[in-house]
């Protein structure tokens, strides 16, 4: 019985520790985000008003970034048909590096190229991955530094609560 209580306590601690990782945003107004996608098409964060946007800063050399990408795909699938979009901002790598990476890893969300690091400076990103959840009005609501399993209930619930 004691072992069972200890196990449940551990599970609770683990889940609450993970939920704590998603922190409410306290950084003020949303910085600008206007970048080209991998095909050279210019995109702006404002284009996605009315949707919940997950802005993830990532790099091909960052193992936690790669580890969390399948869970982002599953999250996208779980929210299919809902006003939710993922923008994965690559941190200053070349088009070739990113395209080579995409031949090995299957992702179909939008990749934006922050070639000169201006976006990551404006968003004050120090660690890869860093992820921001933006509400339909364009305000950042939550932030997470480091990798996560994005389709887990804690994260899914927070995102669903933000949907219009």
């Amino acid at each position: 019985m004691k072992k069972l209580i200890l196990f449940i306590s551990c599970l609770f601690l683990l889940s609450s520790a993970q939920a704590q990782d998603l922190k409410p945003w306290k950084g003020g107004s949303t910085p600008p985000l206007a970048l080209n996608d991998l095909n050279g098409k210019p995109l702006k964060l404002q284009d996605y008003r009315g949707k919940v946007v997950m802005v993830q800063f990532w790099a091909t050399y960052c193992p936690p970034c790669l580890k969390e990408m399948p869970s982002m795909m599953r999250l996208q699938a779980k929210l299919a048909g809902k006003p939710f979009v993922i923008l994965a901002v690559n941190m200053g790598e070349t088009e070739k590096e990113v395209k080579d990476f995409l031949t090995r890893v299957n992702v179909d969300f939008t990749i934006l190229m922050d070639s000169d690091g201006k976006a990551l400076s404006a968003w004050k990103v120090f660690v890869a991955p860093s992820t921001f959840l933006v509400d339909p009005k364009g305000n950042i609501r939550y932030v997470l530094q480091g990798g996560a399993e994005w389709d887990e209930p804690e994260y899914l619930q927070k995102i669903v609560e933000m949907l219009p």
């Binding site: 950084g27 003020g28 968003w123 004050k124 120090f126 950042i140 932030v143 530094q145």
Partner: peptide, 12 residues
């Protein structure tokens, strides 16, 4: 050389 671990969106 950060005095505290920098958080996203916060000046280091």
């Amino acid at each position: 050389l950060y005095s505290v671990k920098p958080a996203p969106g916060v000046e280091a």
